[in-house]
Design a binder for these strands. Sequence first.
DNA 1: ATGTCGTAACGTTTACGA
Length: 260
Amino acid sequence: MKIASFNINGIKARQQALCDWLDDAQPDVVLLQEIKSVDENFPRAPFEDRGYNVETHGQKSFNGVAILSKRPLEDIRRGLPGDEDDAQARWIEATVTGDGAAVRLCGLYLPNGNPAPGPKYDYKLAWMDRLRIRAAELLAAEEPALMAGDYNVIPQDADAANPAAWAEDALALPESRAAFRRVLHMGFTDAFRACHPGPGHYTFWDYQGGAWRRDDGIRIDHVLLTPQAADLMEGCGIDREIRGREKPSDHVPVWVDLDL
DNA sequence: ATGTCGTAACGTTTACGA
């Protein structure tokens, strides 16, 4: 089962590009971030026509996450637990069952956090602490599960073409990296790193300054696997090529193939 | 030339978030 994560930067603007990629890549599941749409306005038809079930958790203008799945989605939950006053749509969960096993899917859009320091950075770190608590619950279940999405964290200098340019940025500050490591070290596998060690692999290139042309990218979209999911991994990749297409998102998909 | 893009709004332009 091919499961992908893709920050599409606006579903209205990306509908055609997303459909073109779906037709090429044929993922079984896609976890979407930054749909920038309320649920009522999400264009479901082009995806349902392609055989996907669609579940959204949107808000007006900003953020918003969704799941597309060729197999039925069960036990859907919206919102990251731990703060009932948090109105930002950044988390959605569902279970999908393969031929053998089931996997719990968590799609996330972690706060950017800039400018740091400041209230937005405080919100990012608080959100990461809530993520850690939900992650601990997933591990305790001892079942296949994954948390995939735009983490807005550059884990190590090797995950940036120009790490010096990001040194003071909320995506790379030591506290951001420590919070990400804290989750990883509980027992998750960074799926892409497990398959592809070494530098030069990115999932985001800024629209500005010719970042794509210069390959000035960063790796901030991640798939974290519980041990039971990691044992099922048959491959992982980044669909880098689509960043060069017409009207691209500034992110590209990262995917994992699980033997479910 | 704050150099790009997407979204919303008292819209033919500005503000915000990224």
